[in-house]
Design a protein around this nucleic acid. Sequence first.
DNA 1: CTGTATCCTTAGGGATACTG
DNA 2: CAGTATCCCTAAGGATACAG
Lengths: 136, 136
Amino acid sequence: MPHDSSSCRSNCPINFVLETFGDKWTLLIVRDLMFKDKSSYREFLNSDEGIATNILADRLKRLEQHGIIFKEADPDNRSRVIYSLTDRGKDLMPVMLEITAWSAKHDRHTNTPPSFLEEYPARKKSMMARFLAKLS
Amino acid sequence: MPHDSSSCRSNCPINFVLETFGDKWTLLIVRDLMFKDKSSYREFLNSDEGIATNILADRLKRLEQHGIIFKEADPDNRSRVIYSLTDRGKDLMPVMLEITAWSAKHDRHTNTPPSFLEEYPARKKSMMARFLAKLS
DNA sequence: CTGTATCCTTAGGGATACTG
DNA sequence: CAGTATCCCTAAGGATACAG
């Protein structure tokens, strides 16, 4: 799905991620899925940054088209939709961790690790442990 | 310079980088400085993606305000201006490498390492070597 | 609940000309 | 060369209402 109908300004790998994530909202959805265990439209909408409904719907569609997320009906509640990261989306984890590390180092206002990481689901603690060891 | 007059939607570290880099152009300037040994306005302007003059000037100003880059007169040519990464800017290296790795894995069209990395200046080869070892 | 649709405003950005 | 300035258009995005 990359380099399809949409823009392709160059074949640079940095530019490639900008084609999908080069805005102020898309990566927040990935964050919510990856670190905050959010999976529904309503949960994304309630995040601190206050995304608008039309922007959220647009970004969910684009993330799905780019193979970063997929949606399915909640087996327990057929009228509920659940979003999940694909393998491609999960592969963004190292990028997200390095971004977090950079912010932790350079922004005194940010909720630095480990306080930020405390929200992480327990099943990811091992990966987080490696990451925390790298910090400080 | 973060969380000053400009927007501050939350104290999330992911959001923090989006406040500075959440657009389609800013990170390309960092790339040019970090990996392509570009340092002048003209060189940034000539990059493949085709940034406009007003956008480039705006992004250079913002990057300087955020402490990612600084400018100085070329000692050899006083009428020439040289841009460089600050320590804060150089600290983005791990983020840039993880982004590159992700694109290399997920975009068959991208100029994947090592072809992309061949453009890197020789003095960075050791860091690149560690990175390349992690790939594949 | 998950979206769509609409309206409207602002920000982003391309093209081009121009200045020091 | 390093920018500014202008013009103009499109994309992004906030607010709100509404639909399935």
